[in-house]
Design a protein around this nucleic acid. Structure first.
Length: 466
RNA sequence: GGUGCCAUCGCCAAGUGGUAAGGCCGCAGCCUGCAAAGCUGCUAUCCCCAGUUCAAAUCUGGGUGGCACCUCCA
Protein backbone atom coordinates (compact mmCIF):
# COMPACT_ATOMS: atom_id res chain seq x y z
CA UNK A 1 0.00 0.00 0.00
CA UNK A 2 1.34 3.40 -0.99
CA UNK A 3 0.04 6.63 0.48
CA UNK A 4 0.87 10.16 -0.59
CA UNK A 5 1.95 11.94 2.54
CA UNK A 6 0.93 15.56 2.17
CA UNK A 7 3.49 16.68 4.76
CA UNK A 8 6.49 14.96 3.22
CA UNK A 9 4.96 15.66 -0.18
CA UNK A 10 5.80 12.27 -1.54
CA UNK A 11 4.25 8.87 -2.04
CA UNK A 12 5.40 6.58 0.75
CA UNK A 13 5.17 2.84 1.26
CA UNK A 14 2.68 2.40 4.07
CA UNK A 15 3.91 0.66 7.20
CA UNK A 16 1.72 0.31 10.25
CA UNK A 17 3.41 1.06 13.57
CA UNK A 18 1.67 -1.86 15.20
CA UNK A 19 1.98 -4.63 12.65
CA UNK A 20 -1.29 -5.46 10.96
CA UNK A 21 -3.19 -2.75 12.79
CA UNK A 22 -3.96 0.71 11.51
CA UNK A 23 -5.31 3.70 13.38
CA UNK A 24 -6.91 6.39 11.24
CA UNK A 25 -8.27 9.70 12.46
CA UNK A 26 -10.21 12.04 10.20
CA UNK A 27 -11.51 15.49 11.08
CA UNK A 28 -15.27 15.23 10.94
CA UNK A 29 -18.02 17.81 10.67
CA UNK A 30 -18.88 20.67 12.95
CA UNK A 31 -22.55 19.99 13.40
CA UNK A 32 -24.15 23.39 13.00
CA UNK A 33 -25.50 23.07 9.46
CA UNK A 34 -26.33 20.57 6.74
CA UNK A 35 -23.51 18.63 5.11
CA UNK A 36 -22.49 19.91 1.69
CA UNK A 37 -20.83 18.06 -1.17
CA UNK A 38 -17.39 18.75 0.27
CA UNK A 39 -18.26 16.86 3.43
CA UNK A 40 -19.52 14.05 1.23
CA UNK A 41 -16.28 13.95 -0.76
CA UNK A 42 -14.14 13.80 2.35
CA UNK A 43 -16.27 11.10 3.95
CA UNK A 44 -16.22 9.08 0.73
CA UNK A 45 -12.46 9.31 0.32
CA UNK A 46 -11.75 7.95 3.76
CA UNK A 47 -14.51 5.38 3.50
CA UNK A 48 -12.70 4.10 0.42
CA UNK A 49 -9.33 4.21 2.17
CA UNK A 50 -10.67 2.11 5.03
CA UNK A 51 -12.14 -0.44 2.62
CA UNK A 52 -8.84 -0.72 0.75
CA UNK A 53 -6.81 -1.05 3.96
CA UNK A 54 -9.17 -3.77 5.20
CA UNK A 55 -9.05 -5.61 1.90
CA UNK A 56 -5.27 -5.52 2.24
CA UNK A 57 -5.70 -7.40 5.49
CA UNK A 58 -5.25 -4.59 8.00
CA UNK A 59 -7.24 -4.44 11.18
CA UNK A 60 -8.36 -0.80 10.95
CA UNK A 61 -9.65 1.40 13.73
CA UNK A 62 -11.21 4.40 12.05
CA UNK A 63 -12.21 7.43 14.11
CA UNK A 64 -14.00 10.49 12.79
CA UNK A 65 -15.00 13.08 15.32
CA UNK A 66 -18.14 15.12 15.71
CA UNK A 67 -17.30 18.68 16.67
CA UNK A 68 -20.22 19.64 18.85
CA UNK A 69 -18.67 22.59 20.67
CA UNK A 70 -18.07 25.61 18.49
CA UNK A 71 -18.96 29.28 18.22
CA UNK A 72 -20.99 28.62 15.10
CA UNK A 73 -23.11 26.09 16.96
CA UNK A 74 -23.62 28.47 19.82
CA UNK A 75 -24.64 31.26 17.46
CA UNK A 76 -27.10 29.01 15.69
CA UNK A 77 -28.60 27.94 18.98
CA UNK A 78 -29.08 31.55 19.98
CA UNK A 79 -30.54 32.45 16.60
CA UNK A 80 -33.08 29.66 16.68
CA UNK A 81 -33.69 29.89 20.38
CA UNK A 82 -32.76 26.25 20.83
CA UNK A 83 -30.35 24.41 23.05
CA UNK A 84 -26.92 23.42 21.80
CA UNK A 85 -27.91 19.82 22.13
CA UNK A 86 -30.98 20.25 19.97
CA UNK A 87 -28.85 21.77 17.23
CA UNK A 88 -26.00 19.26 17.38
CA UNK A 89 -28.25 16.22 17.63
CA UNK A 90 -30.33 17.35 14.69
CA UNK A 91 -27.36 17.87 12.40
CA UNK A 92 -25.48 14.81 13.60
CA UNK A 93 -28.49 12.68 12.83
CA UNK A 94 -28.92 14.28 9.41
CA UNK A 95 -25.23 13.76 8.69
CA UNK A 96 -25.46 10.06 9.45
CA UNK A 97 -28.57 9.55 7.36
CA UNK A 98 -27.21 11.39 4.34
CA UNK A 99 -23.82 9.64 4.51
CA UNK A 100 -25.57 6.28 4.65
CA UNK A 101 -27.37 7.17 1.43
CA UNK A 102 -24.06 7.55 -0.41
CA UNK A 103 -22.80 4.28 1.02
CA UNK A 104 -20.47 5.70 3.68
CA UNK A 105 -20.30 3.37 6.64
CA UNK A 106 -20.10 4.67 10.17
CA UNK A 107 -16.55 4.90 11.51
CA UNK A 108 -15.56 2.56 14.33
CA UNK A 109 -15.30 5.48 16.71
CA UNK A 110 -17.14 8.77 16.59
CA UNK A 111 -15.89 10.81 19.52
CA UNK A 112 -17.70 13.99 20.42
CA UNK A 113 -16.08 17.09 21.81
CA UNK A 114 -18.64 17.27 24.59
CA UNK A 115 -17.63 13.81 25.71
CA UNK A 116 -13.93 14.59 25.68
CA UNK A 117 -13.68 17.72 27.84
CA UNK A 118 -11.71 15.86 30.51
CA UNK A 119 -9.06 15.02 27.94
CA UNK A 120 -8.94 18.64 26.78
CA UNK A 121 -8.45 19.88 30.33
CA UNK A 122 -5.68 17.34 30.87
CA UNK A 123 -3.90 18.32 27.67
CA UNK A 124 -4.17 22.05 28.31
CA UNK A 125 -2.96 21.52 31.87
CA UNK A 126 0.05 19.61 30.62
CA UNK A 127 0.87 22.31 28.10
CA UNK A 128 0.70 24.98 30.79
CA UNK A 129 2.89 22.95 33.14
CA UNK A 130 5.51 22.43 30.47
CA UNK A 131 5.50 26.14 29.57
CA UNK A 132 4.04 25.54 26.13
CA UNK A 133 0.91 27.45 27.07
CA UNK A 134 0.00 30.38 29.21
CA UNK A 135 -3.10 32.00 30.63
CA UNK A 136 -3.66 35.70 30.02
CA UNK A 137 -5.02 38.26 32.41
CA UNK A 138 -8.47 38.02 30.81
CA UNK A 139 -8.60 34.27 31.33
CA UNK A 140 -7.80 32.91 27.85
CA UNK A 141 -5.24 30.16 27.51
CA UNK A 142 -2.94 30.34 24.48
CA UNK A 143 -0.46 27.94 22.99
CA UNK A 144 2.95 29.61 22.91
CA UNK A 145 4.11 28.97 19.35
CA UNK A 146 7.58 30.30 20.11
CA UNK A 147 8.06 27.48 22.61
CA UNK A 148 7.81 24.85 19.88
CA UNK A 149 10.86 24.75 17.65
CA UNK A 150 9.02 22.50 15.22
CA UNK A 151 6.04 24.79 14.81
CA UNK A 152 5.20 25.33 11.10
CA UNK A 153 7.23 22.32 10.00
CA UNK A 154 4.02 20.52 9.11
CA UNK A 155 2.64 23.07 6.66
CA UNK A 156 6.15 24.35 5.77
CA UNK A 157 5.03 27.87 6.24
CA UNK A 158 7.25 30.78 7.05
CA UNK A 159 6.29 32.98 9.92
CA UNK A 160 4.67 36.02 8.43
CA UNK A 161 5.60 39.22 10.20
CA UNK A 162 3.43 41.40 8.05
CA UNK A 163 0.68 42.55 10.37
CA UNK A 164 -1.49 43.72 7.49
CA UNK A 165 -2.16 40.25 6.20
CA UNK A 166 -2.60 38.77 9.61
CA UNK A 167 -6.33 38.41 9.80
CA UNK A 168 -6.64 36.96 13.24
CA UNK A 169 -8.28 39.10 15.82
CA UNK A 170 -5.38 40.01 17.95
CA UNK A 171 -5.27 39.93 21.66
CA UNK A 172 -3.01 42.41 23.36
CA UNK A 173 -2.17 39.72 25.86
CA UNK A 174 -0.77 37.25 23.35
CA UNK A 175 2.97 36.71 23.47
CA UNK A 176 3.24 36.01 19.74
CA UNK A 177 0.98 36.87 16.89
CA UNK A 178 0.76 33.25 15.85
CA UNK A 179 -0.31 31.94 19.25
CA UNK A 180 -3.70 30.26 19.12
CA UNK A 181 -6.36 29.79 21.76
CA UNK A 182 -6.63 26.55 23.71
CA UNK A 183 -9.29 27.92 26.01
CA UNK A 184 -11.48 30.95 25.44
CA UNK A 185 -12.87 32.47 28.58
CA UNK A 186 -16.48 33.56 28.42
CA UNK A 187 -17.79 36.27 30.65
CA UNK A 188 -21.43 36.61 29.63
CA UNK A 189 -22.26 33.33 31.31
CA UNK A 190 -24.47 32.02 28.53
CA UNK A 191 -23.10 28.76 27.24
CA UNK A 192 -19.92 27.73 28.97
CA UNK A 193 -18.07 24.87 30.51
CA UNK A 194 -16.39 25.03 33.88
CA UNK A 195 -12.78 24.15 33.58
CA UNK A 196 -9.71 24.36 35.78
CA UNK A 197 -8.95 27.52 33.80
CA UNK A 198 -12.28 29.14 34.50
CA UNK A 199 -15.57 29.29 32.65
CA UNK A 200 -15.34 29.25 28.89
CA UNK A 201 -15.02 26.91 25.96
CA UNK A 202 -12.20 25.06 24.25
CA UNK A 203 -10.42 26.17 21.11
CA UNK A 204 -11.17 24.17 18.02
CA UNK A 205 -7.71 22.71 17.55
CA UNK A 206 -7.35 21.31 21.05
CA UNK A 207 -10.56 19.35 20.63
CA UNK A 208 -9.07 17.07 17.99
CA UNK A 209 -5.76 16.50 19.81
CA UNK A 210 -7.62 15.63 22.99
CA UNK A 211 -10.07 13.30 21.30
CA UNK A 212 -7.24 11.43 19.65
CA UNK A 213 -5.45 11.01 22.98
CA UNK A 214 -8.56 9.85 24.74
CA UNK A 215 -10.06 7.53 22.17
CA UNK A 216 -7.44 6.38 19.73
CA UNK A 217 -3.81 7.03 20.62
CA UNK A 218 -1.45 4.22 21.35
CA UNK A 219 0.68 5.56 24.18
CA UNK A 220 3.64 3.28 23.55
CA UNK A 221 4.16 4.32 19.98
CA UNK A 222 6.10 7.06 18.31
CA UNK A 223 2.95 8.39 16.66
CA UNK A 224 -0.47 8.80 18.21
CA UNK A 225 -2.08 7.52 15.01
CA UNK A 226 -0.83 5.98 11.78
CA UNK A 227 -2.82 8.18 9.45
CA UNK A 228 -4.45 11.53 10.00
CA UNK A 229 -6.79 12.82 7.32
CA UNK A 230 -8.99 15.75 6.46
CA UNK A 231 -9.75 18.40 3.88
CA UNK A 232 -6.88 20.22 2.17
CA UNK A 233 -7.74 23.47 3.91
CA UNK A 234 -7.12 21.93 7.31
CA UNK A 235 -3.38 21.50 6.87
CA UNK A 236 -2.94 25.02 8.12
CA UNK A 237 -3.76 26.09 10.71
CA UNK A 238 -5.81 23.23 12.10
CA UNK A 239 -3.45 20.31 11.62
CA UNK A 240 -0.36 22.40 12.24
CA UNK A 241 -1.78 23.38 15.61
CA UNK A 242 -3.04 19.93 16.42
CA UNK A 243 0.40 18.52 15.73
CA UNK A 244 2.04 21.16 17.93
CA UNK A 245 -0.28 20.46 20.86
CA UNK A 246 0.24 16.73 20.69
CA UNK A 247 3.99 17.02 20.19
CA UNK A 248 4.38 19.33 23.18
CA UNK A 249 1.71 17.91 25.45
CA UNK A 250 2.20 14.17 25.07
CA UNK A 251 5.06 11.73 24.63
CA UNK A 252 4.47 11.18 20.92
CA UNK A 253 4.03 12.94 17.60
CA UNK A 254 0.55 13.11 16.15
CA UNK A 255 0.62 11.12 12.93
CA UNK A 256 2.95 9.12 10.74
CA UNK A 257 1.09 9.79 7.49
CA UNK A 258 -1.01 12.82 6.60
CA UNK A 259 -3.67 12.68 3.90
CA UNK A 260 -5.57 15.68 2.59
CA UNK A 261 -8.42 15.50 0.14
CA UNK A 262 -9.05 18.13 -2.54
CA UNK A 263 -11.96 20.52 -2.63
CA UNK A 264 -15.29 20.37 -4.35
CA UNK A 265 -16.15 23.33 -6.55
CA UNK A 266 -19.51 23.93 -8.18
CA UNK A 267 -19.40 24.79 -11.89
CA UNK A 268 -15.88 26.09 -11.46
CA UNK A 269 -16.54 28.21 -8.42
CA UNK A 270 -15.63 27.64 -4.84
CA UNK A 271 -18.59 26.57 -2.79
CA UNK A 272 -19.27 29.11 -0.13
CA UNK A 273 -22.13 30.65 1.68
CA UNK A 274 -21.18 34.16 0.66
CA UNK A 275 -21.34 33.15 -3.00
CA UNK A 276 -24.67 31.52 -2.37
CA UNK A 277 -23.69 28.34 -4.17
CA UNK A 278 -23.38 25.88 -1.34
CA UNK A 279 -24.63 22.57 -2.59
CA UNK A 280 -26.02 20.59 0.28
CA UNK A 281 -25.90 16.85 0.13
CA UNK A 282 -29.56 16.60 1.09
CA UNK A 283 -30.51 18.71 -1.94
CA UNK A 284 -28.31 16.70 -4.28
CA UNK A 285 -29.95 13.53 -2.96
CA UNK A 286 -33.36 14.87 -3.95
CA UNK A 287 -32.21 14.97 -7.56
CA UNK A 288 -29.70 12.15 -7.84
CA UNK A 289 -29.49 8.61 -6.56
CA UNK A 290 -27.08 8.26 -3.63
CA UNK A 291 -25.00 5.64 -5.38
CA UNK A 292 -24.70 7.79 -8.50
CA UNK A 293 -23.38 10.60 -6.31
CA UNK A 294 -20.97 8.22 -4.61
CA UNK A 295 -19.65 7.03 -7.95
CA UNK A 296 -19.36 10.53 -9.38
CA UNK A 297 -17.63 12.05 -6.36
CA UNK A 298 -15.18 9.15 -6.19
CA UNK A 299 -14.33 9.01 -9.89
CA UNK A 300 -11.72 11.77 -9.59
CA UNK A 301 -8.59 11.21 -7.57
CA UNK A 302 -9.01 12.25 -3.96
CA UNK A 303 -6.19 14.80 -4.00
CA UNK A 304 -7.44 16.70 -7.04
CA UNK A 305 -9.91 19.47 -6.72
CA UNK A 306 -13.26 18.30 -7.93
CA UNK A 307 -15.46 20.37 -10.16
CA UNK A 308 -19.06 19.35 -9.70
CA UNK A 309 -21.33 19.84 -12.67
CA UNK A 310 -24.38 18.08 -13.89
CA UNK A 311 -23.00 17.17 -17.31
CA UNK A 312 -20.07 15.26 -15.81
CA UNK A 313 -22.37 13.58 -13.33
CA UNK A 314 -24.57 12.27 -16.13
CA UNK A 315 -21.48 11.04 -17.97
CA UNK A 316 -20.16 9.26 -14.92
CA UNK A 317 -23.53 7.61 -14.33
CA UNK A 318 -23.19 5.94 -17.72
CA UNK A 319 -20.09 4.26 -16.41
CA UNK A 320 -21.89 2.98 -13.35
CA UNK A 321 -24.75 1.81 -15.61
CA UNK A 322 -22.31 -0.53 -17.35
CA UNK A 323 -21.63 -2.33 -14.09
CA UNK A 324 -25.35 -2.79 -13.54
CA UNK A 325 -26.05 -3.88 -17.10
CA UNK A 326 -23.50 -6.65 -16.74
CA UNK A 327 -25.04 -7.56 -13.41
CA UNK A 328 -28.41 -7.68 -15.12
CA UNK A 329 -27.05 -10.03 -17.76
CA UNK A 330 -25.98 -12.43 -15.05
CA UNK A 331 -29.01 -11.92 -12.86
CA UNK A 332 -30.24 -15.00 -11.04
CA UNK A 333 -26.95 -16.87 -11.15
CA UNK A 334 -25.39 -17.62 -7.81
CA UNK A 335 -22.05 -16.12 -6.97
CA UNK A 336 -19.04 -18.13 -5.98
CA UNK A 337 -15.81 -16.99 -4.44
CA UNK A 338 -13.27 -17.04 -7.18
CA UNK A 339 -9.97 -15.25 -6.87
CA UNK A 340 -9.18 -13.65 -10.21
CA UNK A 341 -6.34 -11.73 -11.73
CA UNK A 342 -8.72 -8.82 -12.15
CA UNK A 343 -9.20 -8.62 -8.40
CA UNK A 344 -5.46 -8.61 -7.81
CA UNK A 345 -4.99 -5.82 -10.31
CA UNK A 346 -7.88 -3.83 -8.90
CA UNK A 347 -6.49 -3.97 -5.39
CA UNK A 348 -3.05 -3.11 -6.68
CA UNK A 349 -4.38 0.02 -8.40
CA UNK A 350 -6.30 1.10 -5.32
CA UNK A 351 -3.33 0.38 -3.11
CA UNK A 352 -1.35 2.91 -5.12
CA UNK A 353 -2.59 5.93 -3.21
CA UNK A 354 -6.16 5.15 -4.25
CA UNK A 355 -5.55 5.42 -7.98
CA UNK A 356 -9.23 5.45 -8.86
CA UNK A 357 -8.64 6.30 -12.49
CA UNK A 358 -6.69 3.12 -13.16
CA UNK A 359 -9.20 1.24 -11.05
CA UNK A 360 -12.12 2.37 -13.18
CA UNK A 361 -10.18 1.58 -16.35
CA UNK A 362 -9.66 -1.97 -15.08
CA UNK A 363 -13.36 -2.30 -14.30
CA UNK A 364 -14.34 -1.10 -17.77
CA UNK A 365 -11.96 -3.54 -19.38
CA UNK A 366 -13.30 -6.38 -17.26
CA UNK A 367 -16.86 -5.47 -18.25
CA UNK A 368 -16.03 -5.26 -21.93
CA UNK A 369 -14.25 -8.60 -21.84
CA UNK A 370 -17.12 -10.26 -20.00
CA UNK A 371 -19.72 -8.84 -22.40
CA UNK A 372 -17.68 -9.88 -25.39
CA UNK A 373 -17.38 -13.45 -24.15
CA UNK A 374 -21.04 -13.59 -23.22
CA UNK A 375 -21.94 -12.38 -26.72
CA UNK A 376 -19.94 -15.07 -28.44
CA UNK A 377 -20.10 -17.98 -25.96
CA UNK A 378 -23.21 -17.48 -23.91
CA UNK A 379 -22.81 -20.69 -21.94
CA UNK A 380 -19.36 -19.96 -20.63
CA UNK A 381 -19.92 -21.20 -17.09
CA UNK A 382 -16.52 -20.46 -15.67
CA UNK A 383 -16.49 -16.91 -17.00
CA UNK A 384 -19.92 -16.26 -15.54
CA UNK A 385 -18.80 -17.43 -12.13
CA UNK A 386 -15.64 -15.35 -12.28
CA UNK A 387 -17.52 -12.29 -13.46
CA UNK A 388 -20.01 -12.57 -10.62
CA UNK A 389 -17.13 -12.87 -8.22
CA UNK A 390 -15.52 -9.79 -9.75
CA UNK A 391 -18.72 -7.81 -9.38
CA UNK A 392 -18.98 -8.87 -5.76
CA UNK A 393 -15.40 -7.74 -5.24
CA UNK A 394 -16.12 -4.32 -6.74
CA UNK A 395 -19.10 -4.04 -4.43
CA UNK A 396 -17.02 -4.91 -1.38
CA UNK A 397 -13.98 -2.75 -2.06
CA UNK A 398 -15.57 0.22 -3.80
CA UNK A 399 -19.19 0.04 -2.71
CA UNK A 400 -20.49 0.13 -6.29
CA UNK A 401 -23.19 -2.13 -7.65
CA UNK A 402 -24.86 -3.43 -4.50
CA UNK A 403 -28.41 -2.87 -5.66
CA UNK A 404 -30.74 -5.14 -7.55
CA UNK A 405 -29.95 -4.14 -11.16
CA UNK A 406 -33.58 -3.89 -12.23
CA UNK A 407 -34.41 -1.62 -9.34
CA UNK A 408 -31.32 0.46 -10.04
CA UNK A 409 -32.47 1.24 -13.57
CA UNK A 410 -36.05 1.84 -12.52
CA UNK A 411 -35.54 3.82 -9.34
CA UNK A 412 -37.62 6.94 -9.01
CA UNK A 413 -40.52 5.46 -11.04
CA UNK A 414 -43.85 5.19 -9.30
CA UNK A 415 -45.65 1.84 -9.22
CA UNK A 416 -48.49 3.05 -11.37
CA UNK A 417 -46.18 3.97 -14.22
CA UNK A 418 -44.27 0.71 -13.85
CA UNK A 419 -47.50 -1.26 -14.19
CA UNK A 420 -48.52 0.77 -17.20
CA UNK A 421 -45.18 0.17 -18.89
CA UNK A 422 -45.40 -3.56 -18.17
CA UNK A 423 -48.83 -3.66 -19.84
CA UNK A 424 -47.59 -1.78 -22.87
CA UNK A 425 -44.65 -4.14 -23.22
CA UNK A 426 -47.04 -7.11 -23.25
CA UNK A 427 -49.16 -5.43 -25.93
CA UNK A 428 -46.07 -4.70 -27.97
CA UNK A 429 -44.91 -8.32 -27.69
CA UNK A 430 -48.20 -9.47 -29.17
CA UNK A 431 -47.90 -7.06 -32.04
CA UNK A 432 -44.35 -8.22 -32.63
CA UNK A 433 -45.45 -11.85 -32.71
CA UNK A 434 -47.87 -11.09 -35.54
CA UNK A 435 -45.12 -9.03 -37.17
CA UNK A 436 -47.30 -5.97 -37.02
CA UNK A 437 -44.33 -3.64 -36.66
CA UNK A 438 -46.30 -0.49 -37.30
CA UNK A 439 -48.32 -1.14 -34.17
CA UNK A 440 -45.35 -2.34 -32.11
CA UNK A 441 -43.36 0.77 -33.02
CA UNK A 442 -46.29 2.94 -32.10
CA UNK A 443 -46.51 1.24 -28.73
CA UNK A 444 -42.79 1.67 -28.29
CA UNK A 445 -43.13 5.40 -28.88
CA UNK A 446 -45.78 5.45 -26.20
CA UNK A 447 -43.48 3.61 -23.78
CA UNK A 448 -40.63 5.96 -24.58
CA UNK A 449 -42.83 8.91 -23.73
CA UNK A 450 -42.60 7.83 -20.09
CA UNK A 451 -38.92 8.78 -20.16
CA UNK A 452 -37.59 5.25 -20.47
CA UNK A 453 -35.71 3.24 -23.05
CA UNK A 454 -36.48 -0.36 -23.87
CA UNK A 455 -34.31 -3.19 -25.02
CA UNK A 456 -35.27 -6.54 -26.50
CA UNK A 457 -33.14 -9.41 -25.25
CA UNK A 458 -33.34 -13.21 -25.51
CA UNK A 459 -34.75 -13.14 -21.98
CA UNK A 460 -37.51 -10.73 -22.94
CA UNK A 461 -38.00 -6.99 -23.17
CA UNK A 462 -36.56 -4.81 -20.43
CA UNK A 463 -36.85 -1.12 -19.79
CA UNK A 464 -34.66 1.46 -18.08
CA UNK A 465 -35.36 4.94 -16.88
CA UNK A 466 -33.41 7.36 -19.05
C1' G B 1 2.83 40.66 -0.20
C1' G B 2 4.14 35.29 1.38
C1' U B 3 3.73 29.91 0.45
C1' G B 4 2.23 25.94 -2.49
C1' C B 5 -0.34 23.26 -6.47
C1' C B 6 -1.74 22.58 -11.49
C1' A B 7 -1.74 22.92 -17.29
C1' U B 8 -2.48 15.70 -21.37
C1' C B 9 -7.94 14.38 -27.44
C1' G B 10 -14.53 18.37 -27.98
C1' C B 11 -15.53 16.98 -22.35
C1' C B 12 -13.89 14.02 -17.79
C1' A B 13 -9.19 11.81 -16.65
C1' A B 14 -4.50 8.11 -15.76
C1' G B 15 0.50 8.12 -16.83
C1' U B 16 7.30 11.08 -12.94
C1' G B 17 12.85 9.21 -18.19
C1' G B 18 11.88 4.53 -22.94
C1' U B 19 8.32 6.28 -27.09
C1' A B 20 0.42 8.64 -24.86
C1' A B 21 -4.70 3.94 -20.04
C1' G B 22 -9.89 4.32 -19.48
C1' G B 23 -14.88 6.71 -19.84
C1' C B 24 -18.37 10.22 -22.44
C1' C B 25 -19.32 12.38 -27.25
C1' G B 26 -18.45 11.50 -32.69
C1' C B 27 -17.74 8.35 -37.25
C1' A B 28 -17.85 3.32 -39.66
C1' G B 29 -19.39 -1.74 -39.04
C1' C B 30 -21.57 -6.42 -36.59
C1' C B 31 -26.09 -7.80 -34.11
C1' U B 32 -31.58 -6.33 -34.46
C1' G B 33 -37.95 -6.46 -38.31
C1' C B 34 -36.23 -1.34 -36.99
C1' A B 35 -34.29 0.34 -32.44
C1' A B 36 -32.04 -0.01 -27.61
C1' A B 37 -28.28 -2.67 -25.13
C1' G B 38 -23.76 -5.27 -26.29
C1' C B 39 -19.42 -6.00 -29.46
C1' U B 40 -15.45 -4.49 -33.28
C1' G B 41 -12.61 -0.62 -35.64
C1' C B 42 -11.17 4.70 -36.11
C1' U B 43 -9.92 9.60 -33.48
C1' A B 44 -4.32 13.52 -29.23
C1' U B 45 2.59 13.69 -28.91
C1' C B 46 1.01 15.98 -23.87
C1' C B 47 0.28 25.31 -22.78
C1' C B 48 4.86 28.08 -25.04
C1' C B 49 10.38 28.70 -25.42
C1' A B 50 15.22 26.98 -24.26
C1' G B 51 18.27 23.18 -21.99
C1' U B 52 19.98 18.11 -19.94
C1' U B 53 19.82 13.00 -22.12
C1' C B 54 20.95 7.81 -26.77
C1' A B 55 15.83 8.79 -25.16
C1' A B 56 11.26 13.82 -21.89
C1' A B 57 4.25 14.52 -21.31
C1' U B 58 7.62 12.98 -17.50
C1' C B 59 14.04 16.27 -15.30
C1' U B 60 16.14 21.76 -15.27
C1' G B 61 15.56 27.10 -16.36
C1' G B 62 12.41 30.99 -18.26
C1' G B 63 7.54 32.47 -19.88
C1' U B 64 2.01 32.34 -20.13
C1' G B 65 -2.52 30.86 -17.99
C1' G B 66 -5.53 28.73 -13.96
C1' C B 67 -6.22 27.52 -8.73
C1' A B 68 -5.51 27.04 -3.43
C1' C B 69 -3.91 28.45 1.52
C1' C B 70 -2.11 32.66 4.81
C1' U B 71 -5.35 31.56 11.83
C1' C B 72 -14.22 30.33 10.24
C1' C B 73 -13.76 26.33 6.48
C1' A B 74 -14.21 19.13 4.35
Amino acid sequence: MYIYDSVQKTKRLFTAQNEGKVTLYVCGPTVYDDAHLGHAKSALVFDLLVRVLRTNGYDVTYARNITDIDDKIINKAKEQNKSIKEITEFYTDAFHKEMAQIGVSRPDLEPKATESLDAMYALIQKLIESNHAYQTADGDVYFDTSSDSEYLTLSKRVQNEDEKVNRVENSLHKRNNADFALWKSVKDGTIVFDSPFGAGRPGWHVECSAMIEKHLANQDMKFAVDIHGGGADLLFPHHENEAAQTRCGTNHALANYWMHNGFVNIDGEKMSKSLGNSFFLKDALKIYDGEVLRFYLLCTHYRSNFNFNEEDLVTSKKRLDKIYRLKKRLFGLTSVNAKTQFQDELLKALSDDLNISNTLALIDEMITHANETLDTAGKHKELKAETLSNLAYIEEVLGFGAKNPFEYFQSGMDEETKTKIAELILKRDEAKKTKDFAISDKIRDEILSYGVSIMDTPQGTFWEKV
